[in-house]
Structures are given as C-alpha cells and as structure tokens.
Simulated scan of single mutants.
Amino acid sequence: MEKSKLFFAGNLKFLRERRQLTQQELAGKLSLTRSKVNALESGQTKAPSPEDFVRISEFFGISIDSLIKVDLSRLGELKLRELEAGNDVYLKGGNLRVLAISVDRDNNENVEYVPVKAKAGYMAGYNDPEFIAGLPKFSLPNLPPQGTYRIFPTSGDSMLPVPEHADIIAQYVADWTVISPGTPCVVILKGEQDFVFKLVTVNTDGTVLLRSLNPLFEPYTVSTAEVLEIWRFYAYTSREIPEPETDLQQLMRMVREMQTEIRGLKDR
C-alpha cells in the first residue's frame, strides 16, 4: 500500500506565517522553545508529543486530523476561515472537502485513475486514504508541477464533441471561488452513481450551474451542499476522433447560450 502523505510540518509553518508570527513569537504563545518550533516546522521531530498537537490545534483552531492530513496551503482563505470557525469535517462532520491522495516512494503525488467499476465506491471513499491508495496509479508526462490530478472515465454524450467514454485528466480545485464561469470540470455529487462532466459556474447564492457542450441537454443547477469535489479539466484521452459540429448543432448551441444569458439577466 502507498504511504499517506503527511502535512503537519508544512501546515505549522503556513499557519504561523499566515498569522505573521516569528518562530520566537509562536513559541512564546505555545509555551515551547524556538528550537522546538523550528524542529516541528522542518520535520526534524518525527513524533511530536500529544501535548504539542493539542496546543497547536487549540491555538490555530484547526483539528489535529486536519493539521496532519490536509494540505492547508491549498485551501482558499474562505475555507480556512470556516475551519477556524469550527466548520471542520473532523470536528463536526461538515461538508469540508478533504482530499485523500497517494504518493510514490519519492513522495511525489500519483495520478490515480478511477475505473468504471470503482465509480460507486469513489462516492463513499473519496476522502479515504486506503480507498485512494487502492486505485490504479500513473505518472503522466508534462503535467504542471503544482496541483493534484486524477483521471475520470466519462459516459454519455452530453459533452460532445468530447467523445463518449473519454478519460478526463483533471486538476483538483480546493477553492471553488477561483473557478471562472463556464469552466469544464468533473463534478462529484452526493447520491450519484456517475461523474458529471459539465461546464461549471459557481454562483454566489450557494448553487452551481452545470451546462453541457451538447445543446440537446438542458442546463441545471445544484446546491453546493450536494457537491463533494470539483476537478478542473486539463486534458482527455480517447480512441475516437471527435466529429465536427453540424450547422444545426452550432445553431442550437447558440440558441441555448442566448437562453442562458437571458435567464441570467432576468435573475439580476
């Protein structure tokens, strides 16, 4: 089994710098020595004491599990404030998206592939390190060095000209507020047995608009509470060559886009 990546040392430094504290200042607030704080941040202390974990957790308002298992630097400021306010999945069982990943022997993140037969299990095990570690893993060339990537198989023809059964390579989005309107994404929804590949717009009213490239499919909205994960499209692989849009399809797409714009104007 692949080992789980731990983030405690980096999280401690990130949280300290976010509070604009020096190591000496943080040490004073935690009743520790500066050398102890330095050792914790650099990972030189492989087994911090339970008392250290408790002090740091209480001071920053972040649960011990999140300090260890979640890369806090990848969360947006809004989500960090929610954590500090007590909306922590490990403390209250909330809907915080906690990403489980696996790494290789050199501590580089793998690109996991979620096969069709594992789709249903992914909904329950998306934040389970053991489930993620059991998925097929790949190392893909030319991926940007920053970010977490995963491969999702698609079904249906709602995103034509992207062919049916294409494999979507997508990047994990921790902060949904950075998604530009109409960004193609794989969306993991509660209670669904399949992944949704759509053009995504995150609205300020707590809803997410999901729109297809195929004009035959009506757009629809879901509550953000129904969303487990969002993965931004990066690339796709397929054995099929996409067919160009027909004139009728282009016309229908333009009509759909106009209808969407009109709805948006009416809602303002």
Rank of each mutant, 00 (worst) to 15 (best):
Gly134His: 01
Arg55Ser: 11
Gly61Cys: 08
Asp71Pro: 02
Lys92Tyr: 11
Glu109Trp: 00
Met123Ser: 10
Ser63Asp: 05
Arg55Thr: 09
Ser57Ala: 15
Glu58Gly: 03
Asn107Arg: 13
Pro161Tyr: 07
Leu96Thr: 12
Ile132His: 07
Met159His: 11
Asn108Phe: 09
Val89Ser: 14
Asn142Gly: 04
Pro136Asp: 09
Glu77Thr: 01
Gly125Lys: 05
Phe152Glu: 00
Ser31Lys: 15
Gly61Val: 08
Ser63Phe: 03
Ile151Lys: 07
Lys79Asp: 12
Tyr113Gln: 04
Leu96Trp: 08
Arg97His: 11
Asn87Pro: 06
Val162Glu: 04
Gly28Leu: 11
Ala39Ile: 01
Glu25Thr: 11
Gly147Leu: 13
Gly61His: 03
Asp106Thr: 06
Ala100Val: 00
Lys117Phe: 04
Asn38Thr: 07
Ser57Phe: 06
Ala133Phe: 00
Phe60Ile: 04
Arg55Trp: 02
Pro50Glu: 13
Ala120Val: 13
Tyr122Ser: 10
Phe152Val: 01
Ile62Glu: 05
Asp65Thr: 03
Phe138Tyr: 14
Leu91Cys: 06
Ile151Glu: 09
Gly61Arg: 05
Arg55Asn: 13
Thr148Tyr: 07
Glu58Trp: 02
Glu130Asn: 10
Gly93Asn: 14
Ile132Gly: 05
Val162Ser: 03
Val162Lys: 08
Val116Trp: 10
Ala47Leu: 06
Lys69Asp: 10
Leu30Ile: 14
Phe152His: 01
Leu143Met: 14
Asp52Trp: 01
Lys69Gly: 03
Ala124Val: 07
Leu143Pro: 11
Phe59Ala: 04
Ile101Trp: 05
Val70Lys: 02
Pro161Gln: 12
Thr33Asn: 11
Pro144Ile: 13
Leu26Gln: 09
Pro144Glu: 11
Asn108Gly: 06
Asp157Arg: 11
Leu96Ile: 00
Tyr122Pro: 09
Val162His: 04
Gly76Arg: 00
Ala27Asn: 09
Val116Pro: 03
Leu160Ile: 06
Arg150Gln: 14
Lys69Ala: 02
Tyr113Trp: 13
Asn87Ile: 10
Asn38Phe: 05
Asn127Ala: 14
Asp106Ile: 01
Phe131Glu: 01
Leu21Gln: 08
Glu25Pro: 07
Gly94Asp: 13
Asp52Tyr: 10
Gly156Ile: 06
Lys117Glu: 15
Pro141Gln: 14
Phe53Ile: 10
